[in-house]
Design a protein around this nucleic acid. Structure first.
Lengths: 211, 211
DNA sequence: CCAAAAGTGTTAGGAGTACACCCATGG
DNA sequence: CCATGGGTGTACTCCTAACACTTTTGG
């Protein structure tokens, strides 16, 4: 064994929107250390997979989610961050659409749950720091990219998109300015369908690049 | 030995400005693989140091530089990126002021050198990808932060600051607009000194937060 | 007819961009 | 006196932000 070998893990901050709030997925640990505490989904990187593949695999194994948007965040390597030894973790964040988010399969449902980002339980390791980092990244990215669409179903109302932005940014936005800006960006197109859930029916839109 | 153990390295993209161009520091490899080719300074993370400390240490050992601005970039973990085995590298970038940059100590001067970013020699491993990533990050950061000052001596002319921005962005900027914007940001203050090198003496400025 | 959410325009201020000439100095 | 780089202002455009009422539907 080479003295330079270190254990490498991935940890994933999975976001979704629930009840107009930004939520993070946490899993209750069944084994020490931090047994019983909540932690981010994640695990060891295997010998022949990329970091991204490891993140997708862990996410699938622990939560059943698939085809999510995934992006590398930052790598945390404090020598004392894991009491078991030297573990460097590559953190990712993932976005899952709100219409798919309740499905937590492949794991004991009692042991996993969504938590709004400003009411988190105690979390294991340095995972709180990782979550904070991810929330900040998500907020920044929202300002200059289209990441937000990843959190919505294929068809959505402009109000739903606005609620999503407000949930991530943590502040209210002006309805008229928001709609004008989104439509001006040209990333979204009106469908012929309406959503009849509220009082007055709302037009459904879709993201232009289904990618 | 645990099957999950992987070698972890750091690699550092060291930037400076030379002759109005953005330059990167490369070191010629003395041993295989890629013997004789240029590569980024870097090396293994030791058991009891943080990733950042490893980057500072390697930088000091290989180039003699100290007190540089250092920021984590991205982690590259393709299983095939290093022919010797599984090596995950955490990439950083560093900024060294132009008045300190010629000092390459602690290494054979013939084996290290500055290269302008658009005239790079062949580089080892996936280091070209890392350099590209770093250049993009630096360009983006310049738009909304003050990283640029890290590349200048303590006192500098506004023209020097403009040349720096132009070197990083790779395009010319309007002199009047640039000066207005920089002064409006209030990050810089005029000193009483002048630089007499050109024809008409130029006022020297200093960065407001000496930090 | 009432409650609830959808939808829609105008105005004012600030930021960015384009553009050309005079000034101070050393040789 | 001339070559060189230092230094300065104005006008236009575009983006952002503030702000309130009408419409459509279900009950």
């Amino acid at each position: 064994m080479n003295k330079h070998e270190i254990q490498v893990t991935v940890d994933i901050v999975v976001f979704t929107i629930h009840q107009h709030r930004l939520n993070v997925l946490l899993i209750q640990r069944g084994i020490p250390p931090f047994k019983g505490q909540y932690a981010l989904p994640g695990g060891f990187v295997l010998a022949n997979e990329t970091l991204e593949a490891a993140a997708f695999r862990e996410l699938h194994e622990e939560t059943g989610t698939e085809n999510v948007y995934l992006e590398q965040l930052f790598t945390f390597g404090d020598p004392k961050r894991d009491p078991r030894g030297r573990v460097v973790t590559v953190a990712f964040y993932a976005l899952v659409p709100s219409d798919q988010s309740p499905l937590i399969a492949g794991t004991d449902a009692a042991a996993a749950g969504w938590f709004t980002v400003d009411e988190l339980p105690p979390v294991a390791f340095d995972h709180l720091k990782i979550i904070d980092y991810a929330v900040n990244r998500l907020r920044n990215k929202l300002e200059y990219t289209t990441v937000g669409f990843e959190l919505l179903p294929k068809k959505f109302t402009l109000t739903a998109l606005q609620v999503l932005h407000e949930a991530i940014l943590g502040r209210a936005l002006d309805k008229r300015n928001f709609r004008r800006k989104i439509l001006a960006l040209g990333l979204v197109k009106a469908t012929k369908e309406m959503e009849a859930t509220g009082r007055k029916p709302a037009r459904l839109y879709s993201f232009r690049n289904a990618k």
